[in-house]
């Protein structure tokens, strides 16, 4: 089973965090997942969270070069959402009967395991970021997340020159690394 050229295009766009591609995938598939979650004891917010998480799983996979999707994006997203929602229901002890499923599903357990590991690391990083406080957090995010150069950062944060900002950045980075690795080693 091969996916159409259009889907490949969309996947590529997704991997590059392209707004157009994301919008197309979002608009095509949100309704399905929304119906599924809401018809199975979920709320509107639950539906959004589950769908976005399934998109992240797809995004993570699409970025790795050896990934190839052997089914439709729709089926993949539905399968992931379904697993994620089942897990959440079981976790909250809200699981009642078999969740109804009229759509095809594909096995996604392995992808989800990777995703779980990644989201745990993401959580650690977010926690560490939360702990270092301002202005370190904004400074580091400006550099590493938004890829601003040191001159922009210096003017934005009000440092006299780029060197000062760079100094400050490395101080913050040291603290962040310390926090991150402490948590990381605890977790593993």
């Amino acid at each position: 089973m091969t996916t159409s050229a259009k889907e490949q295009e969309l996947l590529k766009g997704l991997a590059n965090n392209d707004k157009k591609a994301i919008e197309a995938i979002y608009a095509d598939n949100y309704g399905l997942i929304q119906h599924f979650v809401i018809n199975n004891n979920g709320s509107e917010d639950d539906a959004r969270d589950i769908f976005q998480e399934s998109l992240i799983v797809l995004y993570e996979n699409a970025r790795s070069p050896e990934f190839s999707l052997n089914c439709q994006i729709r089926t993949y997203l539905y399968s992931v959402s379904r697993r994620l929602w089942l897990k959440k229901l079981q976790y909250g002890r809200r699981f009642e009967a078999q969740v109804e499923s009229l759509e095809d599903t594909v096995p996604v357990e392995e992808d989800l395991e990777t995703h779980e590991k990644m989201s745990r690391q993401y959580g650690i990083m977010r926690g560490a970021m939360g702990k270092i406080g301002e202005p370190c957090k904004s400074l580091l995010e400006a550099f590493y997340v938004h890829h601003k150069n040191m001159h922009e950062i210096a003017s934005f944060f009000g440092y006299t020159n780029a060197d000062n900002a760079k100094n400050q950045k490395y101080k913050c980075l040291m603290r962040l690394k310390k926090l991150f690795f402490a948590q990381y080693k605890n977790g593993n």
Binding site: N17, K19, I22, E23, Y26, A27, Y30, R48, Q52, L55, I56, Y59, E60, R63, M118, Q121, Y122, M125, R126, M129, E141, Y144, V145, H146, H147
Partner: peptide, 21 residues
């Protein structure tokens, strides 16, 4: 850090997309 940044940007993108749609 890179992945953190990517996912963060991706999430922000998703959030925006949801609102736009």
């Amino acid at each position: 850090m890179d992945r953190y940044g990517e996912i963060k940007r991706f999430k922000a993108n998703l959030y925006d997309t949801h609102h736009t749609l």
